[in-house]
Every structure is written in structure tokens, then in C-alpha cells.
């Protein structure tokens, strides 16, 4: 990782600090997104950020780019609308797991089907954090949250297989694996078609501390110890992060027959 500060050009520095709690991992993801923008030298006048509702949703306003803060769950169709109106724009969705996989889950599935050429970065903290810590669609089984005081009775969604269905781009990474996160975002942005990066990030205040983590660093160390990088695998195991393997694609970005 270089110490280049060029990425800052994508941020409205005068709006900092962000509203996120001390120990929140969202800032790490936000910074890494900007570093990936910088690495690809995305034009500021040709890039749009769209976000939904929730902690991650607050990101849109911090980019020094055109941005839209949409209704809860609707970031993907709004982004698709922007892309279909002006194909020359780089359209990036930045939102959370509750927004993208929960309330907006159907849009995710339909965007995969349409293979719309946009990139989605999901700040995946496994919790509805903005509202105080309720169960999310990727909260692990048996985990205690404010709305599952006896442990989550449901299984978390493993969305990588949706992407396999139309040969779209899916990567999972974490806020500990900074270089890997940056690589995933860069490849997602370069991908011609629908791309999605599930960036695991820690919420200490409304999630981790209730699970026994003493601080945010312990959550980061959990990522370090739990996750192994397995790029270009056919599928990722529960403890693996990486970019899933893509089948060869035809020139229009769809899977070749």
C-alpha cells in the first residue's frame, strides 16, 4: 500500500468527519473505494455515486462527485436508470447489506438478470446499524441482535450464487485485507457488466460489542484470523474471501453460449 494521498480528490474533505461511530469500519471502505477510483483515474465529471439508506448510505454525500441518496433499498434501480440514460457514466452504488440484500434484494437479483454495467460496493456489517442493531439478511445463524435476543433463527443469505446465475462479477473481501479490497474494487469497476463487492466491515457500537468484542480492532483481527483469500475459486466457502471465477464472456458482456 502506498501513502499516496491522491485519492482525497474524490472526497469532500470539508464535510469530514463522517457521522460514523468511533471504531466503525465504513471509513476504511470509503477510503479504499476512493483509492480504487484513483488507481483507475476515474474522471470526476464522469462518475456518479448512488446510495440507499443506512450508515453506509451516508457515503454518497461525502464523495466530491454527482451523487443521489435514494429511498431505502432502491439504489440499484436508480443507478440503472442513470446508466441507461447515459451509458458514458461510471455508475457506482455504495450501500449496506440491509439496504442491498434485505429491502432491495429483489433489485439485486433483477440487475444480475439484466447484467447492467454498474458496480455495487456493499458495506457488509451484518447488522441494521443506523437503527440501533437489528438482525440483517447476512447476520450469522444464532447471532444475538436487538430483534433476535435469543439468537438469529434464520440462516444468512449467501448471495454469490445469484451472480453465478448470469456470470456476473462477485467478490467478498474485508476491512482487514486492504490490498485485497482495493484489488476487488478495481476489478469490479473494470468489469463490463454487473459487479458486486461484499466488503465485510465492522460495526462495534451496535453489533460487535454485544457479541463480546472489546473494541473494533478485535473485530478486524477476527477478519484476519477467520478469512483466507481464495481468488478465482468456483465458489467461496464461509471462511473465504476472493473474486469468484467468471466464465468466458462474449463481447456484449453476457456469458458466451
Amino acid at each position: 500500500m502506498n501513502n499516496d494521498t491522491n485519492f482525497k480528490r474524490y472526497l469532500k474533505l470539508d464535510l469530514l468527519p463522517t457521522p460514523w461511530c468511533p471504531g466503525c469500519g465504513n471509513g476504511i471502505v470509503l477510503k479504499t473505494i476512493c483509492q480504487a477510483f484513483d488507481e483507475l483515474d476515474l474522471p470526476k465529471n464522469g462518475t456518479v455515486v448512488v446510495s440507499g439508506i443506512g450508515c453506509a448510505g451516508r457515503s454518497a454525500g461525502f464523495f466530491d462527485l454527482d451523487s443521489v441518496h435514494t429511498a431505502h433499498g432502491r439504489a440499484i434501480p436508480v443507478a440503472e436508470g442513470i446508466k441507461y440514460a447515459n451509458d458514458a457514466l461510471n455508475v457506482v452504488v455504495v450501500s449496506g447489506d440491509g439496504d442491498l440484500i434485505g429491502i432491495g434484494g429483489n433489485h439485486l437479483f433483477q440487475a444480475i438478470r439484466r447484467n447492467t454495467n454498474i458496480t455495487v460496493i456493499c458495506y457488509a456489517n451484518e447488522i441494521y446499524a443506523m437503527t440501533g442493531g437489528q438482525v440483517s439478511p447476512i447476520t450469522p445463524h444464532n447471532t444475538k441482535t436487538l430483534t433476535t435476543p435469543n439468537g438469529n433463527p434464520d440462516r444468512p443469505a449467501d448471495i454469490q450464487f445469484l451472480f453465478k446465475s448470469n456470470n456476473c462479477f462477485f467478490a467478498r473481501t474485508t476491512a482487514y485485507h486492504l490490498n485485497h479490497m482495493r484489488k476487488c474494487i478495481v476489478e469490479a469497476l473494470k468489469f463490463k457488466g454487473f459487479s458486486f463487492v461484499e466488503a465485510r466491515t465492522m460495526c462495534i457500537v451496535n453489533y460487535g460489542r454485544r457479541l463480546g468484542y472489546k473494541n473494533s480492532n478485535e473485530m478486524l483481527l477476527h477478519y484476519k484470523e477467520f478469512y483466507k483469500i481464495n481468488d478465482y475459486a468456483e465458489a467461496l466457502a464461509e471462511n473465504e474471501i476472493g473474486i469468484i471465477k467468471s466464465a468466458p464472456r462474449s463481447s456484449d458482456g453476457f456469458p458466451s453460449a
Partner: peptide, 14 residues
């Protein structure tokens, strides 16, 4: 969950 309704249903789930 949605603010400011959440405390009602959190307490019910408890």
C-alpha cells in the same frame, strides 16, 4: 427497523 419506531418492536421481540 426504522427510526423512530424501532424501540417499540425491539421491546416486543424481547
Amino acid at each position: 427497523p426504522i427510526t423512530p419506531q424501532t424501540h417499540i418492536v425491539e421491546h416486543l421481540s424481547e
